[in-house]
């Protein structure tokens, strides 16, 4: 067994234990904490699999932002989960077992490429071209098409530049919409009469500056 395989097995075992813990625990605060652990573990697995950029995203979004968002949700709801009906739980169990069994069955197919096989379509279609265009080939005089040293960055910023631009526009628009909605609520609360007696210019100015 290689180094990676042993580390992968240990990490995946812990991942499974965390998932079972998340499903079994009724205390939602504990579940939030465990989901943070879950994404830290999966980010580690991504690093072992050499998908460093995916691991970056998983750690920032999964462990960082999602934990904060889930805690914010906890403030608005109960701290304890209620059990669903017996029939509901049995149905969910059947769906999960069937789906997991189907995924295991798919890996048994001899036509499926082996893990890390260099001859799969994913590795032979456009990837060699990207690698050739990105990484300078030793001392060859042939000019490099894209002058970015990292292949992932080349694909994201050059080959899929318009795609990335579209994604950025979408996220920017969503951010502005959220800010507008939040600002609306805050201003209405400030404008309710009685809270802000007239004649206090400093408070008005402070409120305006904050908005």
């Amino acid at each position: 067994m290689t180094v990676e395989e042993i580390i992968n097995i240990v990490l995946l075992t812990m991942l499974a234990l965390t998932a079972v813990g998340i499903a079994r625990l009724r205390n939602l605060f504990a579940v939030t904490m465990l989901s943070g652990i879950y994404s830290l573990l999966s980010a580690s697995i991504f690093v072992v699999l050499d998908a460093v950029d995916v691991a970056f995203t998983e750690a920032a979004v999964g462990a960082g932002i999602t934990t904060v968002l889930l805690l914010g949700t906890l403030m608005l709801t109960d701290r304890e989960a209620r059990d669903g009906s017996r029939a509901n739980r049995a149905g969910a169990m059947i769906v999960v077992v069937a789906l997991g069994g189907a995924l295991f069955y798919a890996t048994l197919d001899p036509m499926m490429p082996r893990f890390g096989d260099p001859r799969t379509p994913a590795q032979t279609h456009v990837a060699p071209q990207y690698l050739k265009d990105t990484v300078p080939q030793g001392s060859s005089k042939e000019p490099v098409k894209v002058g970015i040293p990292n292949v992932v960055t080349t694909v994201l910023a050059s080959y899929r530049g318009y795609d990335t631009l579209g994604e950025t526009v979408v996220i920017f628009t969503a951010g502005i919409a959220v800010l507008l909605l939040l600002g609306q609520r805050r201003r209405r609360r400030r404008d309710t009469p009685g809270q802000n007696p007239s004649g206090n210019k400093d408070a008005d100015r402070a409120a305006g500056a904050e908005d």
Partner: peptide, 17 residues
């Protein structure tokens, strides 16, 4: 480098909690 980013995220998460 990634380990450094993780350290930062961990800190922010704990502060939030």
């Amino acid at each position: 480098d990634i380990a450094l980013v993780y350290a930062l995220i961990n800190f922010i998460g704990t502060i939030a909690v």
